[in-house]
């Protein structure tokens, strides 16, 4: 997806640099920019996180909030047919704040592509989440988690911070506890189950298995080389894009190619898979460390209110 026009000489300059494994901002081809992450940024959600990739004040910036709702089970819905699981619905919006070319409806197609990519990565068993925990009463009521992502800044490579922020938001997710009890109907003498949500704000539970959520590495193919985490200019001259998501054990969870300028050879795809297997588990580890640090800082509680940390970090 090329949003910005770019001159021939600049294209040449960037691609020659990539051939020499030296990019415009001094990085190597397979090096990420720094991820910054904060969790619990939006008080109206059950879990939220904001992730920025790149320098302070610029870079790609994604905010993810997770809202939970209780839905009634209906037969025929292919996702919850079994009756003992909940479901996750993903949606990505790109704010016109992010970049000039996202103004109007032009960003919708891209946003839709990102929504489906996110859905593919986390809303199935491959995300490793405990979907059974989201069931309240089998074949009656279940939790639906709405994962809404908002893109606030754009400096190339939206997909990786999107999954990064999503994983962080799931680590922050606290669902209210629900009590299920049997109720005897006075008139018909039939026993049925009913649930009650506990009012107590401390009666919350985390969602099991968020550690298994995959992170993404997006490879952009420029000439015969490929780079990860590219900037806007590099993205404009790239001819194809491959996103690989893998979890902490290095298991591949999804692969998707985007951008329709050219194809890629099967051997190159194999190479990309091998590299992402090495790359992603270490990225997961570094994120875990960051999240742990955040939790420690929170338990200190001398940290200021959310809006202040929000600005401090970004």
């Amino acid at each position: 997806m090329s949003f910005s026009p770019i001159s021939i000489s600049e294209t040449d300059y960037i691609s020659k640099g990539i051939e020499k494994n030296f990019r415009l901002d001094g990085r190597e081809n397979l090096m990420y920019r720094d991820f910054t992450v904060v969790t619990g940024v939006v008080s109206q959600t059950y879990g939220s996180a904001r992730c920025r990739l790149g320098h302070l004040g610029k870079g790609s910036d994604v905010l993810v909030g997770i809202k939970a709702e209780i839905a009634n089970w209906t037969p025929g819905d292919p996702e919850t047919e079994a009756g003992d699981i909940g479901k996750i619905v993903c949606n990505v919006e790109i704010s016109p704040i992010a970049a000039q070319f996202f103004v109007g409806r032009s960003s919708e197609e891209f946003a839709l592509e990102l929504s489906h990519l996110l859905t593919r990565a986390i809303s199935g068993p491959q995300s490793g989440l405990d979907f059974k925990q989201l069931c309240i009463i089998p074949k009656q009521a279940y939790w639906v988690l709405y994962v809404d992502a908002l893109v606030l800044g754009y400096d190339g490579n939206l997909i990786d911070p999107l999954l990064y922020a999503t994983r962080a938001a799931f680590s922050d997710l606290l669902l209210p506890k629900v009590i299920v009890e049997s109720v005897l109907d006075e008139d018909t003498k039939v026993e049925h189950q009913a649930f009650e949500i506990l009012d107590d704000p401390s009666a919350v539970q985390t969602l099991n298995g968020w550690e298994n959520i995959p992170l993404a590495a997006t490879f952009y193919i420029v000439g015969k080389r490929y780079v990860i985490d590219c900037s806007v200019d590099e993205e404009a001259i790239s001819s194809a894009r491959v996103t690989v998501t893998a979890n902490q054990n290095g298991e591949i969870c999804s692969v998707q190619k985007g951008n329709f300028k050219t194809g890629l050879s099967p051997s190159l795809l194999g190479e990309i898979l091998t590299i992402s297997k090495k790359l992603l588990p270490s990225l997961v580890l570094s994120q875990n460390a960051k999240l742990e640090q955040l939790n420690l800082a929170k338990s200190d509680s001398s940290a200021p209110e959310t809006s202040f940390t929000f600005l401090n970090f970004f």
């Binding site: 999804s254 190619k257 898979l273």
Partner: peptide, 30 residues
């Protein structure tokens, strides 16, 4: 897949697999 130029034009894989398995799958599809 474009056969004579040996190019993958689009690939989408969903679900957890090991890297060897997914490579086997891609080769089989080719």
């Amino acid at each position: 897949y474009m056969v004579s130029s040996q190019e993958i034009t689009n690939v989408i894989q969903t679900g957890k697999t090991s890297i060897e398995l997914s490579q086997n799958g891609l080769n089989l599809c080719v």
